[in-house]
Every structure is written in structure tokens, then in C-alpha cells.
Measured scan of single mutants.
Amino acid sequence: NKFNKELQWATWEILNLPNLNEEQVKAFIDSLKDDPSQSANLLAEAKKLNDAQA
């Protein structure tokens, strides 16, 4: 289903952001699991944090 694909993509993207630490990655992944419908928003937040920590 649509959410599953978005969830998988967002998870992969977050796991490959170079500037997030392990705790941050885990928090984002946990949030994705809690509410897959928010995957696009969570991914945007993760990318923002990644850029801020570059």
C-alpha cells in the first residue's frame, strides 16, 4: 500500500543521512513506525536537522 512504500522510502532516506547521530535516527524511525502517515513530514524534519548539523 501507499503508506508502506512511503514508510520504506523515508526509513531508507533517514538511515542514510550522514549528520544524524544514532539516537536521532532511532527517534525518527520510531516516530515513523508510530505514525506512517507522517512519513513525508518526518523525512523533511530529519533532512532539516541533518542540514543544520552539517
Rank of each mutant, 00 (worst) to 15 (best):
11 T>F: 11
38 Q>E: 05
26 K>S: 07
21 N>F: 13
40 A>F: 11
3 F>V: 05
25 V>I: 13
32 L>H: 01
5 K>S: 12
16 N>F: 05
45 E>Y: 08
43 L>E: 01
43 L>K: 02
30 D>F: 09
6 E>N: 05
36 P>I: 12
28 F>N: 00
2 K>A: 15
48 K>M: 07
30 D>K: 11
22 E>S: 14
10 A>S: 05
3 F>K: 02
34 D>Y: 12
47 K>R: 03
40 A>Y: 09
41 N>W: 11
13 E>F: 10
17 L>R: 00
45 E>L: 10
16 N>V: 05
45 E>N: 07
17 L>E: 00
5 K>E: 15
51 D>S: 11
17 L>Y: 05
39 S>Q: 06
34 D>L: 14
2 K>V: 15
23 E>I: 11
46 A>F: 02
49 L>P: 00
36 P>L: 06
20 L>D: 00
11 T>D: 03
32 L>S: 01
34 D>I: 10
37 S>P: 03
31 S>T: 12
29 I>W: 03
39 S>Y: 15
23 E>F: 12
21 N>A: 12
28 F>Y: 09
29 I>Q: 03
44 A>I: 12
45 E>R: 08
12 W>G: 11
45 E>V: 08
42 L>W: 06
22 E>V: 11
35 D>G: 04
9 W>H: 14
28 F>G: 00
6 E>L: 07
53 Q>Y: 06
27 A>P: 02
27 A>M: 13
30 D>Y: 07
28 F>H: 01
26 K>D: 06
35 D>W: 06
51 D>V: 09
51 D>W: 09
1 N>V: 04
19 N>W: 11
4 N>M: 05
39 S>I: 15
30 D>I: 11
37 S>D: 05
2 K>N: 15
32 L>M: 14
51 D>I: 06
36 P>F: 09
22 E>M: 08
49 L>R: 05
2 K>E: 15
50 N>F: 01
53 Q>D: 03
37 S>L: 06
51 D>Q: 13
28 F>P: 00
48 K>S: 11
13 E>I: 08
46 A>H: 01
46 A>W: 02
23 E>V: 12
30 D>R: 10
41 N>D: 11
32 L>Y: 02
5 K>N: 11
1 N>W: 00
18 P>Q: 08
34 D>M: 15
33 K>F: 11
20 L>E: 00
35 D>E: 06
10 A>G: 03
36 P>T: 05
50 N>I: 02
53 Q>W: 06
4 N>E: 15
14 I>L: 10
4 N>D: 15
48 K>V: 10
20 L>Y: 00
24 Q>P: 00
24 Q>N: 02
37 S>Q: 09
12 W>V: 10
16 N>Y: 04
19 N>Y: 13
20 L>W: 00
20 L>H: 00
35 D>M: 07
12 W>L: 12
40 A>K: 14
36 P>W: 05
9 W>T: 09
10 A>L: 09
20 L>F: 01
7 L>K: 03
20 L>K: 00
19 N>D: 07
10 A>F: 15
54 A>E: 10
44 A>N: 13
9 W>Q: 15
51 D>A: 12
33 K>D: 05
12 W>K: 10
22 E>Q: 05
29 I>N: 02
30 D>M: 12
36 P>R: 03
26 K>G: 06
18 P>M: 08
26 K>M: 11
19 N>E: 04
16 N>Q: 13
49 L>H: 03
16 N>D: 06
16 N>T: 10
9 W>E: 15
10 A>Y: 14
2 K>S: 15
31 S>E: 12
13 E>H: 06
38 Q>R: 13
6 E>T: 04
14 I>A: 02
43 L>G: 01
12 W>T: 15
33 K>V: 10
54 A>H: 14
32 L>N: 00
13 E>V: 07
18 P>K: 09
1 N>M: 02
14 I>K: 01
5 K>I: 08
48 K>I: 10
1 N>G: 07
3 F>A: 06
44 A>H: 14
3 F>L: 09
22 E>T: 13
31 S>Y: 07
43 L>M: 09
25 V>N: 02
39 S>T: 09
44 A>Y: 12
47 K>I: 05
47 K>L: 11
37 S>K: 08
28 F>M: 04
14 I>R: 01
27 A>Q: 13
5 K>G: 08
2 K>P: 09
49 L>T: 07
9 W>R: 09
25 V>M: 10
42 L>G: 01
20 L>A: 00
32 L>G: 01
1 N>H: 05
32 L>K: 00
10 A>N: 04
23 E>M: 13
33 K>Q: 11
13 E>D: 03
10 A>D: 03
16 N>A: 12
7 L>M: 12
24 Q>R: 01
38 Q>S: 11
25 V>T: 13
13 E>A: 06
30 D>L: 08
53 Q>I: 09
12 W>E: 15
37 S>H: 07
7 L>A: 11
8 Q>I: 10
15 L>K: 13
24 Q>K: 01
52 A>P: 02
51 D>K: 09
54 A>D: 15
32 L>D: 00
37 S>Y: 06
4 N>T: 03
44 A>L: 13
31 S>D: 09
46 A>P: 00
29 I>L: 11
19 N>T: 04
36 P>E: 03
16 N>W: 04
15 L>S: 11
24 Q>Y: 02
41 N>G: 08
22 E>P: 14
6 E>H: 08
17 L>D: 00
28 F>A: 02
2 K>Q: 15
4 N>P: 03
24 Q>T: 03
40 A>N: 13
20 L>G: 00
14 I>F: 03
21 N>L: 14
49 L>N: 02
30 D>T: 13
9 W>K: 08
1 N>P: 02
30 D>Q: 12
47 K>D: 02
17 L>N: 01
25 V>P: 00
47 K>A: 06
8 Q>E: 15
46 A>I: 02
13 E>W: 05
8 Q>R: 06
53 Q>F: 07
3 F>W: 11
22 E>K: 13
31 S>L: 09
42 L>Q: 04
3 F>N: 08
32 L>W: 02
46 A>Y: 03
31 S>A: 11
23 E>G: 09
27 A>H: 14
9 W>A: 15
8 Q>H: 04
41 N>I: 11
43 L>V: 13
24 Q>M: 04
23 E>Y: 10
11 T>H: 03
3 F>S: 03
41 N>K: 14
34 D>S: 14
36 P>M: 06
6 E>P: 05
43 L>H: 03
50 N>V: 01
22 E>R: 10
50 N>G: 01
28 F>R: 00
34 D>E: 13
6 E>S: 02
30 D>W: 10
44 A>D: 11
21 N>M: 12
28 F>T: 01
30 D>E: 12
14 I>V: 06
7 L>T: 10
43 L>P: 00
52 A>E: 14
28 F>S: 01
32 L>A: 04
33 K>R: 12
19 N>G: 04
36 P>N: 03
48 K>Y: 07
32 L>R: 00
45 E>I: 09
45 E>H: 07
41 N>M: 11
44 A>W: 10
8 Q>P: 02
8 Q>Y: 09
14 I>S: 02
9 W>N: 06
39 S>V: 15
34 D>H: 11
17 L>H: 03
52 A>I: 10
8 Q>N: 04
26 K>L: 11
29 I>A: 02
18 P>F: 06
34 D>F: 11
18 P>R: 07
13 E>S: 07
11 T>Y: 11
34 D>V: 15
